[in-house]
Design a protein around this nucleic acid. Structure first.
Lengths: 349, 349
DNA sequence: AGTTGTTGTGACACCGGTTACCATACAGCA
DNA sequence: TGCTGTATGGTAACCGGTGTCACAACAACT
């Protein structure tokens, strides 16, 4: 006579109780095993391990979430600064957590909304992620970080410069690489180099601009301030700034745009003036998004390692909870190096 | 003498018990209210409602997840077919669930992996989302859909043509719009029109190609099969196919690439042959991603309403659980219309 | 040998909801 | 008035884990 359970045995997933019963221990002991408690005898560990394997037991994340008051997921908080960028970052994060049981929740926000903090708090206290990855530019906002601390949610800030102690941030060295690139342009003989700045009020544009200015200072070349144009990281702003720069009586011989999208805009501006790139004008960008290799001519740019940063940030965040898999990563690492990618829009050598 | 609770009153979030106590009812009654049970007197409903408002009570999703065996999130399953596309879809989904308490989990998979189904099953049974949005091309796989049914997880398939009953799919009318576009090219006098096909084995490329062929048939023009090149939706394949087409003795006067990325590749091919677009060659793409407006000349393309599809799909999926907010949407809608966007790479009028 | 300290294990309450089932109150009916 | 039926509310068990704490076993001390 079949037991009630039997007809469902294929459907029903084993619980911690089943494992405990099979191993002949209490559920607490199984829980200890799952959480890698050191207070266990090898004999017990073995019994439990065998039972788990035999039943194909997998702990229920919802139950753990309730008991631990944390969901088994990490969240990405961003302000949609650049579509491609977010996607690349996301790719890195997903690569890092692929083999874990974690999910990735994506949460875009609007930094101009007065409700920003309230919305983020609602999201975080609702979903209670294990940790949050905060992308630039909102990674610079201390109020959001304070919120995470108050809610006791781990966080990782992504920036163009270190924003916090090493345990809580991952950064790129924008300033240094822009310095390098600008120096190369100066060494090539360019004197009138236009610069298209990113949006005001955030650090990444400031860093990139600082690298540009540093290079002039270090090379002893005077920077013509009127060659610095304002943009907002978007295509149209690059087009506009490019038109303004190229419309001058003595137009620049090279233009550095703070990101690829604006650099594409500059290319369009150049074409609309009938200029040929790189013969009449050299153009460089920053980010190395797909756009950089799809425009014509292909963009000489800086590879911004946003995907690697995503992977590193996720690893650092997750290592607190999962432990172990830190082999291939130095979790104290903060800076991921950018590097120059030379393509057709500017020859640097 | 302060009670123990008091010093935490600002920190601790109210539970269903607090609401029940304040309203003077049992937690079951509060639960009934939350789940919109009809078996309640107006007086009780009012008491509970007031208490909830007063305490600012929000049901704990983790607890509900455990009891209901469903997590309050929806998942996006995709095979990273095109970065920009996934991002745009994601945008639509997020717009749809913005005001709900749902989270969006993103889960890329590798359709060539032999472990595909196992991985998806692990993910779904682990996270137990309310529903899954399946993007093309894996939306075409019935085994994944069967898996969802078996796990009792709602699903929504996204495709270039209806893939299921109206309750479970959202589609675009690729075939019709390609027909329209091709017809316009033919009407303009083009006879040798190159076509760059998408990857083999999936429906969307087939649909787009079918629209192309239909237009020739309906216009009574003979299609030169050798003008059909194979691509895989990626830039490089467009470049290669473009080179092949343009290297022929009698090169085509227009090329239709099945997506924008390949169309960009075709543009590069044209430049490498010293051809001017649109004067020597007209090029059209498909998707209307950011790339289309960033390349030079800007691409005449088809706006593929992937963002709108994301919004619609999410609304349809979520409406089953949340009810209500269906005002602005026709939830039986399956097809979202694409339309032609005329830019500089081809003039159609 | 008796005391202390350390380590491994289990009993039980708890996380914050939902569901099954039972207990009322009250209306309609004979 | 008593009986039944239907609303409504309450109780306890449950979802599947984790935390606290008591306790047993055993080694290392006086």
């Amino acid at each position: 006579m079949p037991r009630g359970d039997d007809k469902l045995s294929g459907q029903t997933t084993p619980t911690i109780n089943d494992v405990a019963a099979l191993a002949g221990v209490s559920k607490k002991t199984v829980s200890r095993f799952i959480n890698k408690s050191s207070l266990m005898s090898d004999a017990t560990r073995d019994k439990v391990s065998r039972a788990i394997k035999q039943l194909g037991y997998v702990p229920n994340p919802q139950a753990r979430a309730l008991a631990l008051r944390r969901n088994f997921m990490i969240a990405m908080l961003h302000d949609n600064p650049n579509g491609q960028t977010v996607l690349n970052f996301q790719k890195g994060v997903l690569a890092a957590i692929k083999d874990s049981e974690l999910a990735l929740a994506v949460r875009p926000v609007d930094r101009t909304s007065p409700e920003l903090l309230v919305e983020i708090e609602a999201f975080l206290s609702m979903q209670r992620p294990l940790g949050v990855l905060i992308l630039p530019p909102i990674s610079e906002r201390d109020d959001i970080v304070d919120l995470c601390k108050r809610l006791d949610i781990a966080y990782m800030r992504i920036g163009s410069t270190a924003l916090d102690d090493p345990a809580h941030c991952v950064a790129s060295n924008d300033r240094a690489v822009v310095h390098e690139l600008t120096t190369a342009l100066l060494a090539k003989g360019h004197r009138d180099i236009g610069f298209v700045r990113g949006p005001e009020g955030f650090r990444s544009p400031v860093e990139r601009e600082a690298g540009f200015r540093d290079a002039f200072a270090d090379s002893g070349v005077t920077l013509d301030e009127s060659l610095i144009g304002q943009g907002n990281y978007r295509f149209d702003s690059g087009l506009e700034a490019g038109r303004a720069l190229l419309g001058r009586k003595n137009r620049p011989s090279a233009i550095f745009a703070s990101n690829d999208e604006m650099a594409s805009g500059v290319l369009h501006a150049a074409y609309s003036f009938g200029l040929s790139v790189p013969d009449d004008l050299e153009v460089v960008g920053f980010d190395d998004t797909a756009t950089a290799s799809h425009v014509w001519p292909t963009l000489t740019t800086v590879h911004w390692p946003i995907e690697e940063m995503g992977r590193l940030a996720a690893m650092k965040l997750v290592s607190e909870f999962l432990g172990g898999t830190t082999d291939e990563f130095d979790l104290d690492q903060v800076v991921v190096d950018s590097y120059i990618v030379e393509r057709a829009s500017a020859r640097l050598t």
